[in-house]
């Protein structure tokens, strides 16, 4: 057994979203949102499909996971009805990103909204999920 460090820390290496169709999801997450494909490995009828931010190619991966499990549909429908996003992506300029995505046909359930420490917005990822964008305000604001 490896020697334990005094200060063990965990990093978030991978998190996942269920998507209706993995190929459509890959297209949306790369072409529209701007992520980069990291892994695309056949697994039976599906794929181990992950994307990363081009700014952090070794950073946390987002797994675009098949949504065939029967629990997924009611889970996502109930959350979408209440407008609850399943992931949050950070951007430098949320107004510009909002305008860019709207011009690409992306539907927002919440436009950029000032909530004090940050500006947030919520959009539909066309794969069954709501996603929150956040622009943190700098300390000087």
């Amino acid at each position: 057994m490896a020697q334990q460090k005094d200060d063990p820390t965990m990093k978030i290496a991978l998190t996942s979203l269920f998507v209706d169709d993995q190929r459509a999801a890959l297209a949306f997450y790369t072409d529209v949102l701007g992520f980069t494909k990291r892994h695309d490995i056949p697994l039976g009828d599906d794929f181990w499909l992950t994307v990363v931010s081009p700014e952090a190619p070794e950073g946390p991966e987002l797994l675009l996971e098949p949504s065939a499990h029967p629990a997924v549909k009611p889970y996502r429908e109930a959350l979408a009805e209440d407008g609850i996003p399943l992931a949050q992506f950070a951007v430098d300029n949320i107004e510009a990103e909002h305008a860019r995505l709207v011009s690409r046909g992306v539907v927002f359930t919440q436009p950029p909204t000032d909530v004090g420490v940050a500006v947030v917005a919520v959009f539909d990822d066309t794969c069954g999920n709501l996603i929150q964008l956040i622009e943190m305000k700098s300390a000087g604001d």
């Binding site: 209440d82 407008g83 609850i84 359930t109 909530v115 004090g116 709501l130």
Partner: peptide, 24 residues
Amino acid sequence: VRDGQTLFEICSVLTMRHGLSLTR
């Protein structure tokens, strides 16, 4: 101020703008 909000949006503005700590 802004008509047509989801439950999530209403919760976030009540929490962040008005300091309310109510459950959803």
